[in-house]
Structures are given as structure tokens and as C-alpha cells.
Write a protein that binds this DNA or RNA. Structure first.
Length: 413
RNA sequence: GUGAGCGUAGCUCAGUAGGUUAGAGCACAAGGUUGUGGCCCUUGUGGUCGUGGGUUCGAGUCCCAUCGCUCACCCCA
């Protein structure tokens, strides 16, 4: 027996129906907010992710599916979508002055991590990217979309956490101050002693108890950001309040991808165990330029599909049912039944039948299991009399109709 | 990469201080007025107890190894 690869899952049955509906609802919301789909490749050049996500991040350092293809080029199965969007935008020269672009994507991402609840090695994300708008209205657009969507699919126990990391200018000042503070303090865990030098801001979202204590009294980024960043944040908060979008300021949200500036945010939900973030994102104004492309401001987020599915209410999809189940017992009846049955399907009526041997009782049981609303019975007695039986399964009542009525049976139900 | 827990029928699990033919519920199939479903009843199909060693007269039960799953840390959606 060969089993699936660790962290890779089959999705089928009821779960596949849930996914189908969730994707449909996502597309509806994306379209309402004016976002267009991009179907991006799964494989990209490794360099794209090294340069965008950041060389020293965990994702790039130890979680990527990277390999050499047959022409010895290093390629990587995408661990996220944003880098690809930027590559796509520049490759097709889609940007122009004062142009605002809105893209969304849905699809699988790959990270080599130990699987646990809400975390797989192949997982799916739905993401939006709004390009060309440096004002807080960009954040407002993607966050109002987020809020409306999550509300509409019934995810109630959630909270939007918001922070501002400052622009490259003011962050530099904060980074310096924070580093000085951390140097004085010796209560850091091993990881944070290392992080201190590579990316001191990451210390802020360390979960170890001793670090938390240290962080509590650390200088706060929001006290250091420049006028420009402050105004940006204030305007965004004003817009969110205007539309009653709930949020909390959390000065410890840092994000593990290096490309973020100014606004960063995460949506957390109850019921996921320790992987409580279902959606996260922020502003990345310098990413495109840093990759050698347009100088274009950008905001985006990504939603974890698997995590969202775990949170959906039980009644998210309605029960499947069948319109008519046909019961017959021999080839003589089959000749009468199959042509009109085939026509009913062409008319969009959901029908089924069972050509195998079996008693009327067993076929009735089958009809019941398939949740058929009606059953047609055509036995030898009926054929002799030129009629068939139509039974309403919910009412338990049946009527006898002439065989001609099989042609337009949809009128009888 | 680190730690903990768990692997018994398709699914959820029970299996007492190691003892003879390994159980239940659900699901599946057939039957219960030889032409009528759901509820109920009866019967049946289905497991080399993850795998490989070891201890023992005897192992699903104890020990070791191995594989797999789960949760947590880390990190992240």
C-alpha cells in the first residue's frame, strides 16, 4: 500500500462540497469589491521568494520545497502568493501612472513544516492584492472585504488585530531603540538572543513567558512612528470605525515576512487550537521596487482555507437530495424508462436509477438513502396496464399515471 | 528540528491483574405480509489487533525497535 505524502490530504465527500461552496462565496465577494482573478503557477524561481519573503525568515531558511529541475535551475513550490503577484505584474507590464489594480488568487501553497491542527504541508490560500494606492483607503478596501466575507459565512468569534510597523525611515529609529533595550535585558530565550541580531522586531511576538515579561516594558513602535505613518494609521482607524469594523490595536504584531511596512494585521478566531490566525496581511510598498520592478504601493492579505473550513458552521451547506429515483425490474421496463429519464437530466432534473437485481423493498431503501423526493415505480403490472406509479416520498402518497406522462414528468412533481 | 499522546472491523471505540473461537454501536447487505422507504426486530458480510523482533506454556494486553497519525513548541494562513 502506498499512502499519501505527510502533510498532503485528499479532500472528498462532504468536505469537497464545503470547499466548493466556500470558493464560490469567495469569488462572489471578490467580484463585489472589484478584484480580478489571476491563476498563478505553482512553481517559481527560487530567487523570487528569497528576495521577497527574506533570506533570513524561517519560511525561506527551512520550509520551502526547493529543488533543481532537469536543466539545473533552482525552482520552488510557492510558499505564498504575494511574491508571485508582484512578479506577474511586472512581467506583463500591467501598471501605469495612477492606475489601481485589484487581483485575487485561490490555490495551494507549500511549506515543509510538522503538520498539526490547521497546518498542512500543502495548504490553500485565498488572497487579495490591491496595487497602486498608497492611501489608507487601500487598507480599508481589503479589510472591509475581509470583514464582510467572514461575517457572511458565519465566522463570529473573530478579531482583527492591527499594528503599524512604520516606514523604513521611522522603523530604523525604533529598531535602534529596541535593540538598546534588549541589550540591557538578559531575560531572553535562546531564539530571541539569535533574533535580536537578525530581526529584533521578531522578539516582540515571542511566546515564551520570560520574553513576554521583557517585551511588556519594551519601547512601543507606535510611539516612534513618524507623522506620516501616524496620520495613515489614524485615517484607517477612522474609516474602520465609520463602518463599524471591529478591531484591536496590537503593538506586538510583527509578521514573519520581511516585506511589510506600515500597516500589518491578523485575524484570529477561536476553535483552531494554537493556529488561531485565519487571515493575515499588510502593506508592502517597497516589494515591487526591491524586486527590480515598478515603484508601486501595495496592500494585501491571505486567508487560510483549511483553517476557515474548520470554523464553518454545521449548516454551511444544505443537504443533497434527488428529484426522482426510478425503480424497475427488467429490460422490458428499461426500454420505457431510460429515454425519458435521460431527457429529464437534460432539463436539469436530478434523477437516478439502479439497474441491478433487487427487491422493490431494497430499491425503495436505496431511494430513501439518496433522499429522493419522488419515486417512479414501473413493474410488470403497470406495464400491462400502460401506467406507472409516482410516489411522493415526503408525504408517503402515490398516484397512478399513464405512461405518456413519463415524457414530461417534471410537470407532475 | 524539539516534546507528549495514540495506533483493535469502512467509521467511533470497548477489550478487566497477559489465558483458549477478538467485541459493541454506527455503516453496509439480506429478511421480518413473496410489489413499497424512513422507526423497530432478526441474521449476515467485514479484523493476520500498524509493522518487525523479544519475554512467556500462552501477548491485542508486557519490553524494544520501526513506521504512521494527532496535539503542542517553533513558525505561520
Amino acid at each position: 500500500m502506498i499512502n499519501s505524502v505527510r502533510g498532503f490530504k485528499d479532500i472528498y465527500g462532504k468536505e469537497a462540497k464545503v470547499w466548493e461552496k466556500l470558493e464560490k462565496r469567495l469569488r462572489e465577494s471578490f467580484s463585489l469589491w472589484g478584484f480580478e482573478e489571476v491563476r498563478l503557477p505553482i512553481l517559481e524561481k527560487t530567487e523570487l521568494f528569497q528576495r521577497s519573503i527574506g533570506d533570513t525568515t524561517d519560511i525561506v531558511e527551512k520550509e520551502m520545497y526547493t529543488f533543481l529541475d532537469k536543466s539545473n535551475e533552482s525552482v520552488t513550490m510557492r510558499p505564498e502568493g504575494t511574491a508571485s503577484i508582484i512578479r506577474f505584474l511586472n512581467e506583463h507590464k500591467l501598471y501605469g501612472p495612477d492606475k489601481i489594480l485589484k487581483f485575487f488568487y485561490i490555490g495551494p501553497m507549500f511549506r515543509y513544516e510538522r503538520p498539526q491542527k490547521g497546518r498542512l504541508r500543502q495548504f490553500n490560500q485565498a488572497g487579495v492584492e490591491l496595487l497602486g494606492d498608497s492611501t489608507p483607503y487601500a487598507e480599508f478596501e481589503v479589510l472591509s472585504l475581509m470583514d464582510n466575507f467572514l461575517e457572511s459565512i458565519g465566522i463570529k468569534d473573530r478579531m482583527l488585530f492591527l499594528n503599524n510597523l512604520g516606514c523604513p525611515l521611522c522603523r530604523q529609529q525604533y529598531r535602534k531603540t529596541l535593540l538598546e533595550y534588549l541589550e540591557q535585558n538578559h531575560n531572553l530565550c535562546e531564539d530571541c538572543i539569535r533574533r535580536k541580531n537578525t530581526n529584533p522586531l521578531r522578539v516582540l511576538d515571542c511566546k515564551s513567558e520570560t520574553c513576554k515579561e521583557t517585551i511588556k516594558n519594551s519601547p512601543k513602535i507606535l510611539d516612534f512612528i513618524c507623522e506620516n505613518c501616524k496620520n495613515h494609521m489614524a485615517k484607517l482607524e477612522e474609516l474602520l470605525k465609520m463602518c463599524k469594523i471591529q478591531y484591536q490595536i496590537d503593538p506586538y504584531i510583527v509578521r514573519g515576512l520581511d516585506y511589510y511596512v506600515k500597516t500589518v494585521f491578523e485575524v484570529h478566531a477561536k476553535g483552531l487550537g494554537s493556529q488561531s490566525a485565519i487571515l493575515a496581511g499588510g502593506r508592502y510598498d517597497n516589494l515591487s521596487k526591491d524586486l527590480g520592478g515598478y515603484d508601486i504601493p501595495a496592500v494585501g492579505w491571505a486567508l487560510g482555507i483549511e483553517r476557515t473550513v474548520l470554523l464553518l458552521p454545521e449548516n454551511f451547506i444544505e443537504e443533497e437530495y434527488l428529484d426522482i429515483f426510478f425503480i424497475y425490474f427488467n429490460e422490458r421496463a428499461e426500454k420505457i424508462i431510460l429515454p425519458p429519464l435521460n431527457n429529464l437530466r437534460k432539463k436539469g432534473i436530478k434523477v437516478s436509477y439502479d439497474p441491478s437485481k433487487g427487491s422493490l423493498k431494497s430499491k425503495m431503501r436505496k431511494a430513501d438513502k439518496l433522499k429522493s423526493r419522488y419515486v417512479v415505480i414501473l413493474g410488470d403490472d403497470e406495464i400491462s396496464n400502460g401506467v406507472f406509479i409516482l410516489k411522493n416520498m415526503n408525504l408517503g402518497k402515490q398516484i397512478t399515471l399513464p405512461l405518456e406522462k413519463l415524457e414530461n414528468l417534471e410537470k407532475e412533481i
